[in-house]
Amino acid sequence: MGFEVLLKGNNMVRLLAGLAVSLRISLVSVAISIVLGVILGILMALKNPIITVISRVYLEIVRIMPQMVLLFLVYFGTTKAMGINLEAETAAVIVFSFWGTAEMADLVRGALLNIPAIQYESSISLGLNKLQTYRYVIVPQIIRRMIPLSINLITRMIKTTSLVMMIGIVEVLKVGQQIIEANRKASPGAAFGVFLIIFLLYFIACWPISMLSRYLEKRWEN
């Protein structure tokens, strides 16, 4: 099955270290994406024509450009064009935040615009001021609507970090390939076992996040 290669030397530790790299890149990117995405989302909901045009162009770029191209552009392009020598991980975080911010902003904008006007009007007629309207009426609804979608984004981001191997970062999948290749003669069937373990590692990383979202959704429903 190929599990025996994982017990050789410190292969398992290397895989876990690779997973840590994947998680570090994706979680830092997610944190930045949430902060910037919320800001951009609010801006977009203002329906200012200039902001709308700029954000549309930005969203389209993110949608059209493969993340791989963005990685190459940021990692190698900045050095070629501007002489800035970015660390590979910094480049990866920039690319993933660039992508995540766009998706988060779109979610926030959608959620904000989906709140019917009557909610604002009713709050005012109940005597709530603006701050209270947002605090007690609007924001809770937005958060609830956004949670499943942003969890989806986070898990997608963790999975997409496998691309960073193209700019020399050794993350979990790359370690897996290294282990398989290093044992290609000794245990030719190692691929199955190694990929199964990598699948489990991704699962262990993403499952708690999904559980957290389910818990939060339930808690905020009441």
């Binding site: 290669v5 050789k8 030397g9 410190n10 292969n11 290397r14 020399g168 050794v170 790359k174 370690v175 390939q177 290294q178 282990i179 398989i180 290749e181 290093a182 290609r184 003669k185």
Partner: peptide
């Protein structure tokens, strides 16, 4: 030095994490 890390036997990483 840029090397392959998964092209055995030209450039790969052994079970101790050493390039070989």
């Amino acid at each position: 030095i840029g090397v392959f890390s998964d092209k055995n036997p030209f450039g790969y990483v052994d079970e101790n994490g050493e390039y070989q």
